[in-house]
């Protein structure tokens, strides 16, 4: 298989399979999780402004009192790399074109130079976060193969995308193909690893906010 064949495969058959498995896995997992249901809370609720599942979905994005000082690496690292991923995924012009070609919606992108800078910062932060996972006693204790796999699956698309755009290491075609392939691996793995948190965290926050919100505690 030469590089154009490789690129054609990942853009064609490969992507079809990956997107198919992603949708399949995601629906299966979400149905599996949320049809477990829960009992209705029969205790009379205490209504307090700002205490609800919806509030918690938003509020939990901010560090709780005094936690920022306790775990700066987790918070700043977490913020930077999540934000960086968001920006590079959704504001890089070719990605927007991709979405437009699929769904017909588009929005303005950011200049390449900005994307470059964000990517470098994000890559560096992800390395720092990995280092922290290996170094921090709690994180190291909790970490399983799945954690390192999820890290790699997130890091690779960013790295290959950057190398492709910058024409580093391998010819552009091969790098672009590897980039798409790495995204496909990420898509396939997402529903079956902790990466599913990108979706379930909203429900989890909602449940937490709802449970406490009924008692009148904004969490």
């Amino acid at each position: 298989m030469n590089e154009i064949e490789f690129l054609t495969w990942v853009r064609g058959t490969g992507l079809n399979i990956a997107l198919g498995l992603f949708v399949l896995g995601m629906l299966w997992r979400l149905v599996e999780i949320y049809t477990l249901g829960r009992k209705k809370d029969l205790a009379p609720t205490r209504k307090v402004a700002g205490a609800s599942g919806w509030h918690t979905i938003a509020r939990r994005s901010m560090p709780p009192h005094s936690m920022l000082k306790r775990s700066p690496v987790s918070y700043f690292g977490g913020y930077i790399f999540h934000l960086g991923l968001f920006i590079t995924v959704f504001f890089f012009a070719p990605h927007i074109k991709l979405v437009e070609s699929l769904l017909g919606i588009s929005w303005p992108g950011l200049p390449s130079q900005v994307i470059d800078a964000v990517t470098v910062v994000t890559l560096a932060t992800m390395l720092l976060v990995l280092f922290d996972r290996i170094n921090n006693p709690v994180k190291r204790f909790l970490s399983t193969f799945g954690d390192y796999l999820a890290w790699a699956l997130t890091f690779l698309p960013l790295l290959t995308g950057f190398l492709a755009v910058k024409h580093l290491l391998l010819p552009y075609t091969t790098m672009l193909a590897l980039h798409i392939l790495s995204v496909e691996l990420l898509l396939i793995a997402l529903p079956f690893t902790k990466l599913i948190h990108v979706v379930t965290l909203f429900a989890s926050r909602w449940y937490n906010g709802d449970i406490s919100g009924k008692r009148g505690v904004p969490v």
Binding site: S74, K139, K194, I196, S204
Partner: peptide, 19 residues
């Protein structure tokens, strides 16, 4: 129940609960 399933699925082993 569903919250338990959702919670376990969401955990990213960040370790902040320890702090």
């Amino acid at each position: 129940d569903a919250p338990v399933a959702s919670f376990f699925s969401s955990c990213v082993h960040c370790g902040l609960c320890a702090d």
